[in-house]
Design a protein around this nucleic acid. Structure first.
Length: 227
DNA sequence: TTGTCGATTGAG
DNA sequence: TCAATCGACAAT
């Protein structure tokens, strides 16, 4: 088989692996590699922590209430990038899954930096000018979804990129799924927090800390008149 | 058009 | 423990 067909074959296999429910796809992404050549800087990471977000059955998913301008890419073909803006200051990156017409995505929560640590460090320093641009441990540069997206230089302008295309400045390479990983509740969400839909590699330094979600308690407190 | 809230982070 | 800070979306 010639080189081009080999490549096409690899893409087909990867696309197929991503074309299922987020819950099944998420653990397969542990250990996978993301190459970012955004902004003229090359950063390569190995994914160590992810969360599954299903579509219209998952109240914590952006796709829960159906397609909108923001979440449109979640309803498209698997293997594309979905970046969203949160808390007025952070970007977070997802890889879409499922087949066209059905929403699903996997949030990238943490990664080890395999290449381009200086660039990731620069971006961290630039994000907090005048602040403690001092030694952030290498293992923490991409620990947490916003820090990971920042290390890779990803923003909303990159939403929709095909991570399986050789022409894309951001690319995903899937490896053999890991045999050893952990699962637990998703971080920071106020609804459907009971599902163990967060997956991580047990010995990775970059895995982020668990924080339960907030807010919802305030709303229910207001409704019930509880102090 | 307005008000509420968030898949977070970093400082105090 | 809390503020920062703004886009998306639901409720007017």
């Amino acid at each position: 088989m010639d080189r081009v067909s080999n490549r096409a074959q690899r893409v087909m296999v990867a696309r197929d692996q991503l074309a299922g429910p987020a819950l099944e796809v998420a653990p397969k992404l542990l250990g996978a590699t993301v190459v970012s050549e955004v902004g003229g800087e090359r950063v390569v990471v190995r994914i160590t922590e992810v969360e599954a977000y299903e579509g219209q059955d998952d109240p914590a998913s952006h796709a829960f209430r159906g397609p909108t301008k923001r979440n449109a890419v979640m309803f498209g073909e698997a293997g594309h990038l979905y970046c969203y803006f949160i808390y007025g200051m952070h970007w977070c990156a997802n890889i879409t899954c499922q087949r066209s017409g059905t929403a699903g995505a996997v949030l990238l929560r943490a990664a080890d930096i395999a290449e381009g640590e200086p660039a990731a460090r620069d971006r961290t320093a630039r994000a907090a000018p005048g602040r403690t641009a001092t030694a952030v441990p290498a293992g923490k540069l991409a620990s947490g979804p916003a820090r990971l997206a920042r290390s890779l230089g990803l923003t909303g302008s990159h939403t929709g990129l095909d991570l399986l295309s050789d022409d894309s400045p951001v690319r995903l390479t899937m490896l053999d799924p890991p045999t050893d990983y952990r699962a637990g509740p998703r971080v920071g969400i106020a609804v459907a927090a009971e599902h163990p839909w967060r997956f991580w590699l047990p010995d990775a330094a970059s895995v982020s800390a668990y924080r339960p979600g907030g807010r919802k308690r305030l709303a229910s407190r207001r409704q019930t008149g509880q102090p």
